[in-house]
Design a binder for these strands. Sequence first.
RNA 1: GCGCGGUUAGCUCAGCGGUAGAGCGCCUCUCUUACACAGAGGAUGCCACAGGUUCAAAUCCUGUACCGCGCACCA
Length: 917
Amino acid sequence: MLSKVYDPKPVETKWADAWQKDRLFIPCPSPKRKPFVVVIPPPNITGALHMGHALTYTLQDVLVRYQRMLGREACWAPGTDHGGIATQNVLEKALKAEGKTRADLGREEFLKRMWAWYKECGATILNQLRKLGCSLDLNPDNVRFTMDSKRAASVYEAFRSLWAKGLIYRGARMINWCSRCGTALSDIEVEHEDEKSKLWHIRYPFQDGSGSVTVATTRPETMLGDTAVAVHPEDARYKGMSGKMLKLPLTHRSIPLVADEGVEKDFGTGAVKVTPAHDPLDFEIGKRHNLEIIRVISFEGHMTKICPSEYAGLSVQAARKRIVEDLNTAGLLVKEEHYKHSVSKCSRCNQHIEPLVSEQWFVKMKSQAAPAIAAAEKEEVKFYPPSWKKPFTDWLNNIQDWCISRQIWWGHRIPAWYCRKCSGPGLKFSDRGGLSRVSFAQGAKPVVSFEKPPACPDCGGTDLLQDPDVLDTWFSSALWPFSIFGWPEKTKDLEYYYPASVLVTGYEIIYLWVARMVMSGIEHMGKPPFSQVYLHGIVRDRHGKKMSKSLGNVIDPLAMIEKYGTDAMRFSLMAQTLGGKDIPFSEETIIGGRNFVNKLYNVARFIQMYLPARPGPLTAERPDELADRWILERYAAALDRSKAAMTEYDLPKAQDALYSFVWDELCDWYLELAKPRLAGPDKEKVMGLLLELFTGSLKALHPFIPFITEELYANLKLYLDKSQATSHRSQVKPDSGEQRRAGYLLEESWPAAAVAASDASALMEELMGVITQIRTARAQFEIPPGKAINALAASNDASALSRLKAGAGYIKLLAKVENFTLGVGLVKPPRSVSAISGPFNIYVPMDGAVDLEKEKGRLAKELERVRAESAQCLVRLNDPSFAARAPAAEVEKIKARSKDSAGRISRLTIILEELSD
RNA sequence: GCGCGGUUAGCUCAGCGGUAGAGCGCCUCUCUUACACAGAGGAUGCCACAGGUUCAAAUCCUGUACCGCGCACCA
């Protein structure tokens, strides 16, 4: 006998290995079948998978397995992402622990270590995906990496093509600089956070001694780089002053007062200091007024040498403190106010971002955004939930050029080369404090080439240097939907599988990734990379807080798998991914999943008890009792509901329909009714139906909980008629010589059941109501479940009574009734408990005396309930406008309910009166 | 500042126009040979607030409050 409790671990390991070994997930293009393609969001190789990965990959696996069972050629190609800054930070952290920096190692050695890390971490991640049950073929020949040679070719081609079209350029612009990561960032990699700070009011005196102008700033240290003070041209307070010179405090420079529309009259003093090198707005003002750009903050986050010597070299924080003190001493600090404002932080390391002017590579986005917006508007790319369409198009409508160069080492190096000779002495690479920057002579033009060009096309010089920067990691991610199929090579896969069916990912990367894929798909492939985008939420802790190490609320999916099994975790994740909302997750929700998996295991155990020793198909003849007809109807309904929910990406609903069918109907009712029949003449027919329904449920549940279903099916399928096992692929995919196990559940068809409507449900529900009433009476008077009782049912409705008579067997069985008497006008026996169900009065005689007060209380409460119901009906029926305006069916329904409750009231009243006598 | 969500049982959430639901937790009874990771039964809700639309509102509309989350160059 098998253990009573299911142990998932050996089972899950066994099947995960078998699926991989038999290479069941390797897609094979076939003109006969429509592909179903899911583009995997490649996990960054930054470490182990977290709960968010578990969610997104489970979701995708459910869709892929489901579509595979519907007969589509499912393609879900695995891969990992090099993850740029995030991954480089992992290694830098490790180096720091060794007391080293990346500069100590040098670029070449550092990259060697990064590749070693990729090998280790990449393998770990793939193994974790296998444990998650993902139906990905993880054989090395099928796994992609954003930095492998094929993807490098894709990246180069995309760069070359954009460059050739003039969509890539290099120039000095205001960018976001993270001095901790040592690199520029794009706008979306910057997060904004409210921070308490101060607003300092500083007086700038006029050079001619005619008073002063007071400016307000949150960043006093940048004043050393001020090259103007700006006011609004129509600000009366500063009328006629524009063009006058001001003395810049703490320096020996003087700067002009300029008038600019960009200044907000009503803010602060109406005068703003202008630091073109360190503020985006100031940069714009500077351009309009041709102001000098003085960079006073270095890439390392220190005050530069241009600053007066007492400040040069100080950190930004130290300089701020010192400057405020000095201004105060000089009597130029007018006031200090408490102030809350939003500051920019690096999304990778949470350090303050320094806006500064720097030469970087950019992609022009406006022209690429336009067709992407159109695709969303026309729903060629459709969002689930649809509410994401607006944020998507809004962002694209306001898109800025994309800064794609990063001053790190890990990534695709920018394929641009510079001729030393042509560029002149201005071309030089510098390496300061671990940062590589390059500066160029005016007009130096790079040559775009994947490999080092043999000679400079202009002067024939052979001393060419490659740009030291690498591309933003999202540059390669943006190409993923087609680079995974080998683009720019025109492969068969690319032709068959592009565009994908659906992209599933978290909403937090809708701009970072989704929008860019849509744009580059249209740009390079001529059409959007997928037609549907399913955006899910973020896994949070049970109270909705983001999981973070510092809060200590992180749940490790691998630990949960270890403890409860993958199926249990998948089940509980899928139960909660509704409507793209964030998912509150806690360990206890997994227990629900585990319990269900255990339930299935025990149903199988039950069935196996009655299975003949020698495997072989059971009879296909169906039993035809009420319960049989009823359960078939319920089964068909559950499959329908589940299927309908799947097409709407409502996975919780799809899963729940099957869950409640199995637990609440198949187990709680049908199985119990089947028990005695399994010892009778109907045995084989009942077993046949039970097996059909249960294996069908396993099939339908397989996408959600692949392991337990595969396991149980493997044991039961030997008893199934061959017509019930229908694989899509066995015939399309001939054995490649190797011995391959056949008959996997995952290759079966998703079940179908067509059942004609009948009265079975209504009849069954009537019986269930009576059974529940008797059970309730038993429970209220604490009759032990094992103890048999007698019961009587009385009614004036003869046809109802005959229905009940037909179902008496079920009542006796499920309510544990020994003698069940029924008839018209039966008299309530002394010392009995009463109940009402539909048209029936039910009496349950007790052994001893009945606690009259308890019984009266119980019935009085029921009476009160029915009276309320009746009153509610009457209110509506007495309202003439209800009859006039409500649909006829509704009026009929209420009339029937009213009549029914009136009858119950009188019957209850009589019973209560008799009790009081 | 603009935008988007949320507010329903102790907790986490479904329901989105016709008698308030699930899971977990709680209480009672049962270890009855599928399952105590179970079975049977039970308690628990002014469905955030205020107006409106409707024969009928948790459900639609309009406001308000509180809580989240995006986007945004007001120094």
